[in-house]
Amino acid sequence: MCRVGKPLMYCRIEIPGLSNGLNMNEKVPKTSDYWYAGEGIEYGQCGITISRMTDRQNGQFKCMLGFSDEQNESHGATIVTVARPPRNRPELTITPEVDPRFGTYTEGTSIKAMCTVTDARPAANLLWFMGDDQITDGVGRPEIVESPTDLFTVHQNLTRRLTWRDNRKDLKCVATHIALDGEMKPTVIQISVRFAPRPVDGIIEQFGFIVGEEGIISVQIHANPKPKLTWIIDQDSFPEGSMDLTQRFEATSARDMGNGTWEAQLRIMRVTAEDVARNYILRARNEVGEQQYTVRISTSAEPQGSLELGTGPIIGIVVAILVLLIIIFMLIFARATGRWCFS
């Protein structure tokens, strides 16, 4: 709507898609497509209501205003954008391609992904996800290209160095747009990463074993491809799917837990006091590397909510106690010798 502060003699509006202007005022009969909008041209209001916007109305709207006391007419213009959703789902490409020998990427590989959404008005917004986690690091600025038909194509790059945590996750490009009810169906590429068995911090402790009864040691290993497992008890080593020389320990084959996680189990036929005192070594090896784990078992119940402090915090606490004791000793000594005055 165009507004001025004095009465109009006429109001003429030009809209995209019509070759001729429209004479609009409150006395012009309504049509099914459009009608006058405003309180009246005598109040200086020149507007139009369109019942249903279509693609052909995208563009510049103009209003021409005539006055009874002026020779020249006034005019105003505005750009109206008719939103149009993307025609197709996002196009997603990744370079370099996976290693053809394995059909996977190697951990540490830097990939460059490009997502493209075409023929939208205005340009679509793009979001990146790895699995359920949104990616914000490594996302480039969107590049928007306008076509002669006033439609927009958007390109956006993502650079990412793959880690073992990306294995078996879906890289997703999601397009959102004002003309869409919700999100457009994303384009997905599953990422597979080769990596050596992952280390763990320190010794793995497992609780709740009962002397005289069967016990199960269970260790989860992150690796891709599947690792080969070997258990070492004292000087005896034996692979998964077999038993030790004493026939008291049985190593089951690695069980696939999904997403590059494997479960290794060692069954103790009957737990003895000696079993509680020994270390159990698990060696996991695949084509990428090898890792060794040390397990200890206990007949105690697993601690609930125990406070675990590292070496650093413990040293800090000890030093603080010593400083406090020194200060107390100095105060007692000074008072006893009369070197400081105390009221």
Rank of each mutant, 00 (worst) to 15 (best):
I50K: 07
G38V: 06
D33W: 01
N157F: 13
E302P: 14
Y36E: 00
M184W: 04
I314H: 09
I281M: 13
F67C: 14
P96D: 02
R255V: 09
F129S: 06
Q71V: 15
Y280P: 12
D181L: 13
E70S: 14
I210G: 04
L229Q: 01
L65W: 10
S306N: 08
P85Q: 12
L322Q: 11
A254P: 09
C63D: 05
A334P: 06
K226N: 11
I216E: 07
G305K: 05
G260F: 05
S242R: 09
T230R: 15
H155R: 15
A336S: 15
T230V: 15
L151G: 07
D256R: 07
R160T: 04
G59S: 08
G108M: 07
P29T: 00
K226Q: 15
G66M: 03
E107W: 02
T109F: 06
D201Y: 04
S306R: 14
V318H: 09
L158S: 02
V288G: 10
R267V: 10
P96M: 01
L162E: 06
Q235L: 09
G312P: 01
N279I: 00
V318S: 13
G260R: 04
W35H: 13
L22R: 05
N88L: 11
T106L: 12
T299C: 07
R101F: 01
G38I: 02
R168A: 15
N286C: 12
T246S: 15
G21D: 08
D234Q: 15
R56F: 08
M1I: 03
L309D: 11
L162I: 10
P100K: 11
F207I: 02
V154Y: 08
D132P: 08
R278A: 07
V319F: 14
T116C: 08
G208Q: 02
S343D: 12
W231P: 06
F67M: 13
V318W: 10
N286R: 12
A277M: 09
M330G: 11
V117Q: 09
G258H: 05
N20R: 10
I268A: 03
V219W: 03
N58T: 02
